[in-house]
Structures are given as C-alpha cells and as structure tokens.
Design a binder for these strands. Structure first.
Length: 434
RNA sequence: GGAGAGGUGGCAGAGUGGUCGAAUGUACCUGACUCGAAAUCAGGCGUAGGGAAACCUACCGUGGGUUCGAAUCCCACCCUCUCCGCCA
C-alpha cells in the first residue's frame, strides 16, 4: 500500500511512477473522496466533542444530585441540548466510515512505485541483463529435455499426476524424488549455515488478512486456491512462503536494533495459473503445486537496498554451488509484480529450451507490504515507522531439478549428481547408471 | 466434538454505566544523588487520524446493539487456556 500522504501531497509523483509501470491512474475520484472525507471527519469530530462534553456534564450533575443537591433544572437543560445530536452524529459517523472504506479500497489496489534504478519497459522484453555466470554446456549428442530424461529414469510420472489430481500435477518417484528432497535440504542448510537465516516452518493455508498483507489480495484472488470452511470463513493455499513468513511481523512494532530478521522456509506453493492456458504445458516448468525455498528479510528502511543485493547474492550462491549457468536480470517497470519496488530475476540455463528460464525472483518491497501489514520498527525513544520487507526464491526446487537433469545429462540418458548434493544422496554420483 | 475459564497499554494486573485512554507494579527514557554502577528520589513514557498550534477525535479481542454517556450491560463471532473425548 502506498503512503496515503504521498497521494495527498505528491500526486504527480505517484502518477509518474505508475505510468512507468504502464498503469494509468485517475486521481480525480481520490481527490474528491479526500475533500469529502476531510469535511465529514471534521464535522463528525465536532459533533462527538459536543456530545462528550455534554455527557460529562450530565455525569457531574448526577453526582451532585446523589449528594442531595437539586440540579433537576440544569439536568433537563443539558439533556435537551444533547437530545438533538444523536441522529446527526450517527449519520455522519456512518458516512465517514463509508468514505474511509472507499479511500482504503482505492489505495489498496494501487501497485508499488518502481525504484529509480528500475529500467523502463512495458514487458519482459524491457528487462535488463545485469550479469551472466557460468558457461552453457556443449553436448556432442542430441539433447533431451527433462521430461524425456525423467521418464527415462522412471522418476517423473506426469500421467499418474494427472490421474490423481489433474493437469499441471506431477508424481515423482525413487531417485528423482530423492534428488528433489536433496535440493531442498541443500538449500536450507546453505542459507542457515552460511547466510545467517533462521529456518522457519509455516502454515500452508493462511487467512485473508495475511494475503492482503503481502499484496495477493484483493486484486489477485483468481491466482489462488481457496478453501471454504463450514463456518463461512475461508483460507487460501499459499502461492509462496513469502506470505506466511512475511506476515510473521504483521501488526508488530519491532525494536530497530533487533533487525534485520532473516528467515528461510521450504514449502510447497500452490498457484491456480489462471490465464496461463497453453503456456509451458509440457513438463514441470509451470505446475499447480511446486516446492520452493524462500528467503525473507525484515530490515530497517535505510538498509533495504543493500539487503536486496545481498539476498540476490544468497540465491545466486545456490546456482553457483550447483554449477548451473544463469543470468541476472533487472525487471523493467512494466514487468514487475504488484508489490515490488525493484526485482531481480535469476534465470537458469535450460539446454533443451536453449534459453534461460526464471528460477528465482528477488524483490525489495520497501514499505509497501509493511504498511499493509502495520509492521513497524522503533528506535529507542523514537516514533514507529514501517519496516522494509524483501524476499526471494532461493530457489524454486522443481525448476532447479529440471535444470540439474538437463545440464547434467549424459549421452546414455543417465544424469550426473552435482557434487554438493551427493552427501544428501547417500553418495550416489549419477542417476540411471547400472 | 463436550464442559469450564478468560481476552485491558512492551509485560504483569486493577477497573461491572458518568472527567477512564484507563489505577498500580515492572520494563524503558530523562534528570538528581554517585568516581561510576546498583539502590533511592523526581519527571516522562500506547497507537492512529485531524490541526500552524492550543488542542480535538477514535481505539480496552472483532462486529453489532442498548444509553445523553459503554472497558463496564445485551447479542453474535474470533482467539487463548484447562479438563474430557478423538487423533498423526
């Protein structure tokens, strides 16, 4: 959520920022609402003040009455004066509540403003390559994709996934399932031991407040899986661990000196993938359910830009240790997610597609999520101010598995196990070798 | 699922219709005393909105209601704890 003060005082700045995203905004309705809000709020508060004053007078008169004084006349006066207030006050309070709700709703659906360092651009073609690491492997045989490799190894079973649940679900078995688990373990261990993150286990279903806090609601409900409960309430399956983990600090006022908080969390992620029909339908690239190790940081406002570079580096470390070639992209303003002020995507080399594909997305949200969540920090004796939040995949496990299979494949259809994973694989050096 | 208890400021904990945004303790901040600390003493110390300011308004789990006036009474819901049942 943007700072409503910014909308009031610097509307041009907001409009300019949103225009970079390709999102035009009409501020006229906002300004009209604001003008009315101001007027109604002032009037309401004046009426409240009057009522409070008169009610206190009644209280004092009653007190004197109980001591035997005759105050009947003044009591009648005051009662008469307050009698007319009720309806007007109620009407104004109701009107104000509606206005405030409308203002909230308006501000809540405005995306974050891009940071000045974010490149211009309308869509993914505007993204800027920042760096490349590693060299795509050269094969002297016909390259297979992960579907062929995984099915050949007997460990990726798309048909059974479809039978059990439907399209975009996969069943993994045997060594592939173990490799998948090994990847998660390896990532968690690296981030906790080498990068200073605290491991977190979090709920996979969350309430609407949490989804609002990180910005999935109200605008993106169609991307979520929803669970209706018998009591009429609802929960949502998390589309990323970002949601439960960032919401750890919702409604909290933290001591600045105890920041930053760094959390790492491995969860399944559930995405309805509405609107992506026909896209990446083959294989494991785009699934309704996939696992991800997520990095989350809660930092003081002045520290978030340095933290974004660090956090992105933490995700890159995983790719480097796995020896997977990748490139680092700065998303352009038009391609960024709703809540982000700046996003780096890491794209891993996929030989079968002969291209780089997104495997991690690292973002600084500045105070955008913190304002929605009322997550604040306070210096000793100071005023509370919103924290800054960041997160990034470190990494998406399903896609990492795809990248390992394709980059480590051999002519006979077997697949080498990256050295850093062998300890998690009982020493196995390759899959499919007999 | 059944029965009971309870949700008040960072924490603890009073407050059952009238200057209660809320006693008291504790934590924290400032000052005094001290070489310094501890102890002691004095003052300060919730969040948010409006206002140039004085100051005003709202908030006692959430949402309704009664009332001139609600932390306090009524209704619904949520959450926590204890016991029983069930359960990985």
């Amino acid at each position: 959520m943007l700072d409503i003060q910014l909308l009031r005082t610097q509307p041009e700045q907001v409009a300019t920022g949103l225009a970079r995203r390709g999102a035009a905004i009409d501020l006229a309705p906002f300004e009209a609402l604001e003008a009315e809000r101001k007027q109604v709020q002032t009037l309401t508060q004046e009426l409240q003040q009057k009522r409070n004053t008169l009610s206190k007078q009644i209280g004092m008169l009653k007190g004197r009455e109980s001591k035997g004084e005759d105050v009947a006349a003044s009591l009648a006066d005051v009662m008469g004066e307050v009698a007319g207030l009720g309806d007007a006050l109620k009407a104004n309070e109701d009107k104000l509540a509606v206005l405030l709700a409308q203002l909230d709703a308006f501000v809540a659906q405005i995306p974050n403003l891009p940071h000045e360092s974010v490149p211009d651009g309308r869509d993914e073609t505007g993204n800027a390559e920042i760096a490349r690491w590693g060299t795509p492997p050269v094969f002297d045989f016909a390259v297979k994709d992960h579907v062929e490799l995984g099915e050949g190894l007997g460990g990726l079973d798309f048909e059974t996934g479809v039978k059990i649940a439907g399209s975009r679900f996969t069943l993994m078995k045997g060594d592939i399932a173990r490799l998948h688990r090994a990847l998660a373990q390896f990532m968690l261990d690296t981030h906790t031991r080498e990068h200073g993150y605290t491991e977190v286990y979090a709920p996979y279903l969350v309430n609407p407040d949490s989804m609002f806090g990180t910005g999935q609601l109200p605008k993106f409900e169609e991307d979520l899986f929803r669970v209706e409960r018998s009591d009429g309430s609802r929960l949502y399956l998390i589309p990323t661990a970002e949601v439960p983990v960032t919401n750890i600090v919702r409604g909290e006022i933290l001591e600045t000196e105890r920041l930053p908080l760094r959390f790492v969390c491995h969860t399944p992620c559930f995405r309805s993938e509405a609107g992506s029909y026909g896209k990446d339908t083959r294989g494991m690239i785009r699934q309704h359910q996939f696992d991800k190790v997520e990095l989350v940081q809660i930092v003081p406002p002045e520290a978030s830009w340095e933290a974004l570079e660090q956090l992105t580096g933490h995700a890159e470390t995983i790719l480097q240790k796995l020896n997977l070639p990748y490139r680092k992209m700065a998303l352009c303003a038009g391609d960024m997610g709703f809540s982000a002020a700046k996003t780096y995507d890491l794209e891993v080399w996929l030989p079968a597609q002969n291209t780089y594909r997104e495997i991690s997305s690292c973002s600084n949200f500045e105070a955008f999520q913190a304002r929605r969540m009322q997550a604040r920090c306070r210096d000793k004796g100071g005023k509370p101010r919103p924290v800054h939040t960041l997160n990034g995949s470190g990494l998406a496990i399903g896609r990492t598995l795809v990248a390992v299979l394709e980059n480590y494949q051999r002519a006979d259809g077997s697949v080498g196990v990256p050295e850093v994973l062998r300890g998690y694989m009982g020493g196995v050096e390759a899959l499919g070798v007999r």
